[in-house]
Design a protein around this nucleic acid. Structure first.
Length: 787
DNA sequence: GAGCACTGC
């Protein structure tokens, strides 16, 4: 039933049938948990994770008695496709079928599907959103914009779009920040609707468009919807756009919301007041951000639906931790000894801390008292190879307890089942772009209150849980309410180009949900101008149109265009594709580091000389010389590169080739061999790789330098480098093949400041190229030499 | 002289 709250535009739908889950023992202090509120932080004054917890009677670790109801009303796939696939799936013939994991059984007939849907209907009826649908749907139907606050487990992402399918005129798009979520939701809603995915309900994510002319409801990544918008700026085939997870405030979600604001005005012109709008937007978000979205959309009504979460008791430290790893290790031991069964999830900021904590816990685990369960520490971060990531899902023997030590990846992207305890360092790492300096910094910073709530919520998905915060409650109270939106701390060259593509002249005065600020915008405009993407009146050029179309960062897109002129397009596509895949080169364990470094330089004679970009080309060529997948896998393992990563390189390469072709690239799709590119040119440095192909190293690197001229540095006598732009000190990152080598000048794809300024993906360049490509940098170069 | 959080096209 709906009940009115103080703010008259806010309507709360409270499900009166909601009950405390049956397995939650009622002995929790009454004032400790108020079921109907978020952020009811319980302050336990005991100094440490306490042992007074035997009130719980949950003896079965998996706690399968309870229906696992994840946020979207169901479970199954917890990881994105990069990680759920085990290696063997790649041995299948069709390289594009690797999303099979998400496909339904296409042998099911329509009536089988309808039967299945009828079964699922019984489960849907238990979801909080379902119970209040007759109140909510009419509210949504009459408004052009609705802000819907659905707590975790309310079922909003599946049910609201489903209910709207029969009500709205045209198609519905539901955006998601992540690919997995889009695919999973489509799967689930198709089942609930009684169709195959791709019929009435489908999805669209990069590399996979599972939709048809029948598709009425489409789950789509926000990046894909923006891409559709570049082609059809009015989104004319949709009558309804649902922006889900809006509180995550990714750059793409923020952009989309800005575009939707303009589109609402445009498409609802002439609609009489009170009549059903032509175009409708529903923003789904977490509580704290609701007002912001509402005021952005002219005080749009806020609807609130309660979730289905179990209570989580929260504990704080009574003094600040001085060594976070040490404090975490001690807390794990205490929780293990003092608490009932259930797995532990710990949050630390980064890989280095996590590896250290795992190592310590692994070493002391056998020494711990035998009365407590045996702890099994497991790391979790994005750069971890998929097989190791999968270990967090494997069941353990009895009397063992998983201790998963994770980065922020477990806060939203990965849901680990069986977690009953969360230990939170309160820290995360964040990349902050400094546009004045033209570099990124990677900082360890305190999380926000919203983030702390989300982390602790990970303990309350299957039964009641506990969260131990490794900081003081007074420090908690000092945290910001919500995490700063990404757009305020990122490079926004690509977003600005998208605005230009859509004809926005006044970038500074656009409908920014969060205005990134004049400095950041002006710096983006300048960079786009120097790339040639904008002309001097600020309009997008034909080169800019090409850049915005290509599915890579603007600088890399410019490199691709240049490579075409330099007759090295194929090689540059290979390299750009490699650069588009994260964690392609894995960090070998320290004991194998020297061996693997040698192996890499032996395999890449040209890369050893010319740097990482050429090395990527050589590695990719070697990868492709193997006939059998088993051979490939073995080679990848030996040289410590990601097999999955290279498969993704091939997909991206194919996509880039298609785009380049659509932009008028003349080349023949089926690779002209490099030998045909051979030109008898004394100025050009032609190299032969161990796979016996000939690579025009100079032309490739000059193509890159065209896009990355500002990312170059001059070698100093003391083996350090100074950037050409402002003479800053920069070091070659230890992961580079050029680490420790002296070169006259270098060019790098990325500059990140951690403990010091590091250049990543480094290539050796000739000094004269700098003058050739950008004479204006010459003066600063001489300044640097004197410095 | 020694190491990067997460996501999207």
């Amino acid at each position: 039933m709906g009940r009115r709250q103080k703010q008259n535009k806010k309507i709360v739908f409270s499900d009166t049938e909601y009950e405390t889950p049956s397995n939650v023992n009622e002995n929790i202090d009454n004032n400790s948990v108020k079921n109907n509120e978020i952020n009811n932080d319980y302050n336990d004054n005991s100094e440490r994770p306490s042992k007074r917890s035997k009130k719980y009677n949950d003896n079965n670790t998996g706690s399968t008695e309870n229906k696992v109801t994840t946020e979207n009303g169901y479970k199954t796939v917890y990881f994105d496709d990069k990680s759920t696939e085990n290696d063997d799936e790649y041995t299948k013939e069709n390289p594009d079928s690797d999303d099979e994991f998400f496909q339904q059984d296409y042998n099911m007939t329509r009536s089988d599907l309808k039967n299945k849907a009828a079964e699922l209907y019984e489960i849907r009826k238990t979801l909080p959103v379902f119970k209040v649908k007759d109140d909510i749907i009419p509210q949504i139907m009459k408004e052009p914009v609705t802000i819907l606050i659905g707590e975790t487990g309310s079922g909003k992402s599946t049910q609201i779009p489903h209910f709207l399918m029969d009500k709205v005129k045209k198609n519905i798009a539901v955006t998601q920040p992540r690919r997995v979520a889009a695919m999973n939701l489509a799967m689930r809603v198709a089942e609930e609707y009684g169709c195959h995915v791709g019929e009435e309900v489908g999805y669209s994510v990069r590399f996979n468009n599972v939709t048809s002319s029948r598709t009425k409801l489409k789950y789509i990544t926000d990046g894909m919807l923006l891409r559709e918008m570049m082609v059809d700026p009015k989104l004319s085939k949709y009558s309804t756009i649902v922006v889900d997870e809006a509180h995550e405030r990714t750059i793409l979600t923020d952009l989309l919301i800005g575009f939707l604001k303009g589109l609402l005005i445009e498409r609802n012109q002439g609609v009489a007041a009170g009549a059903e709008p032509n175009f409708k937007v529903i923003i789904m978000s977490a509580t704290l951000d609701a007002e912001k979205f509402s005021s952005f959309f002219d005080n749009a009504p806020i609807l609130f639906v309660e979730g289905k979460m179990y209570p989580v008791e929260r504990f704080y430290m009574n003094k600040a931790a001085d060594d976070i790893i040490d404090t975490l290790v001690k807390s794990v031991i205490q929780v293990n000894q003092g608490e009932q069964s259930g797995d532990i999830l710990c949050f630390l900021p980064g890989q280095e801390d996590i590896d250290k904590a795992v190592e310590i816990l692994t070493n002391i685990s056998p020494e711990l008292p035998k009365e407590a369960p045996m702890i099994v520490p497991l790391p979790l971060y994005a750069a971890l190879p998929p097989q190791q990531q999968m270990k967090i899902f494997a069941p353990l023997k009895s009397r063992q307890r998983k201790v998963i030590i994770s980065t922020n990846i477990a806060e939203t992207s990965v849901t680990v089942p069986g977690i009953k305890y969360v230990i939170d360092s309160g820290l995360r790492k964040v990349k902050v772009w400094r546009h004045q300096l033209g570099l990124s910094t990677l900082l360890t910073v305190p999380i926000s209150k919203a983030s702390a709530t989300q982390r602790s919520g990970r303990a309350g998905r299957e039964s009641s849980g506990k969260c131990f915060r490794l900081y003081k409650e007074t420090d908690y109270l000092k945290l910001t309410d919500i995490t700063e939106p990404e757009i305020l701390r990122s490079e926004i060259i690509s977003p600005v180009l998208m605005l230009k593509k859509l004809g926005v002249d006044d970038i500074l005065g656009w409908y920014w949900l969060e205005n990134p600020g004049k400095e950041s915008l002006v710096s983006s405009l300048q960079q786009l101008y120097s790339l040639g993407a904008l002309n001097n009146s600020g309009k997008i050029t034909s080169l800019g149109e090409k850049i915005v179309t290509l599915p890579v960062a603007p600088h890399l897109a410019a490199v691709l265009i240049k490579a075409q002129e330099n007759n090295v397009l194929n090689d540059v596509i290979d390299i750009v594709s490699c650069l588009s895949v994260d964690n392609l080169l894995m960090n070998p364990p320290s004991e194998k580091r020297d061996e693997i470094n040698h192996l890499r330089s032996d395999s890449c004679p040209l890369g050893t000389n010319h740097g990482d970009l050429i090395m990527l080309k050589e590695l990719y060529d070697i990868f492709n010389t193997f006939k059998e997948n088993d051979e490939r896998k073995k080679w990848c393992k030996d040289i410590s590169v990601s097999y999955k990563g290279f498969k993704n390189v091939s997909r991206i390469r194919k996509q880039i080739k298609e785009y380049m072709h659509s932009l008028g690239s003349e080349y023949d799709d089926d690779d002209i061999e490099n030998e045909n590119d051979f030109r008898d040119d004394n100025n050009t440095n032609m190299g032969r790789t161990i796979t016996n192909s000939i690579i025009d190293v100079d032309s490739i690197l000059k193509s890159f330098l065209y896009g990355f001229i500002a990312n170059s540095a001059i070698g100093m006598p003391d083996r350090s480098y100074r950037t050409v732009t402002n003479g800053n000190l920069i070091s070659v990152h230890p992961s580079s093949l050029l680490f420790g080598k002296k070169k006259d000048a270098i060019m790098y794809i990325e500059f990140v400041y951690t403990v010091k300024g590091y250049a990543r993906n480094v290539s050796a360049i000739k000094l004269e190229w700098l003058q050739e490509i950008a004479p204006q940098f010459q003066s600063s170069k001489t300044n640097v030499s004197k410095a």
